[in-house]
C-alpha cells in the first residue's frame, strides 16, 4: 500500500511497487486519458505529467513515485471548464480518432509550463517521442501554438484582476 498524489488528491494504492503508473491510473483510479499504446516507451500515448515534467507512465513504476505529484489530462480541466490546452485542441479540432491526443496534450502542457512561448521547432522537437497515426500533426501543432496564446491571455487577465 502506498500513497500516490494524482490531480491534487491523495490515493491509497494497493499494487505491487513494480506496477507501471499507467495501470494504476486506469485500473485503480478509473482514469481514462492516459492510454496503453505500446508499454515500451515508444509511442507516447501514456504520457502524463510528474512534478511538472512529461513522463511515460507505461515505463514509470510506482516505486519511482513516492512523494511526487502526478497530473493527468483529467486534472487540467473539464468539458465545461476546459484548461487552455483543452480549449485549444477543441478549437483547432485537433483530433481524428484521438487515441494519441491525451499524450500529445500532456507533453505539450509540460513544454508550455517550462517554456510559455515555444517556437514551432521547439514544439516539434518536444513532441518527437509521441506518435499519431491518423495524421493530425498539423492540427496538433496549431493547437499547441493556440494553447500558448490562450495561456498568455489567461495569465494577462489574471494579472489584471489581481491588479499587477
Amino acid at each position: 500500500m502506498m500513497t500516490l498524489k494524482v490531480n491534487g488528491q491523495e490515493n491509497h494504492i494497493d499494487a505491487d511497487p513494480d506496477t507501471p503508473l499507467l495501470y494504476v491510473l486506469r485500473d485503480d483510479l478509473k482514469l481514462n486519458a492516459a492510454k496503453f499504446g505500446c508499454g515500451l516507451g515508444q509511442c507516447g500515448s501514456c504520457t502524463v505529467i510528474v512534478d511538472g515534467k512529461a513522463v511515460l507512465s507505461c515505463v514509470t513504476p510506482l516505486v519511482l513515485l513516492e512523494g511526487k505529484q502526478v497530473t493527468t489530462l483529467e486534472g487540467l480541466g473539464t468539458v465545461s471548464a476546459p484548461a487552455p490546452i483543452q480549449r485549444a485542441f477543441m478549437e483547432e479540432q485537433a483530433a481524428q480518432c484521438g487515441y494519441c491526443i491525451a499524450g500529445m496534450m500532456m507533453r505539450a502542457q509540460a513544454l508550455l509550463l517550462r517554456n510559455p512561448k515555444p517556437t514551432d521547432a521547439q514544439i516539434r522537437a518536444e513532441l518527437q517521442p509521441n506518435l499519431c497515426r491518423c495524421g493530425t500533426h498539423m492540427r496538433i501543432l496549431r493547437a499547441v501554438h493556440r494553447a500558448a496564446r490562450l495561456m498568455d491571455t489567461a495569465d494577462a487577465s489574471a494579472n489584471e484582476r489581481s491588479g499587477q
Binding site: L40, G41, Q42, K53, V55, L56, V59, T60, L64, P129
Partner: peptide, 21 residues
Amino acid sequence: AGVPAVAGERSPIMPGFADSM
C-alpha cells in the same frame, strides 16, 4: 537520455528516464 528513435529507420528505442527518476 535513453536511445531516441532514428527518424524513419528501423532502430532500437529506449525511453530516457531523466524526467521520471
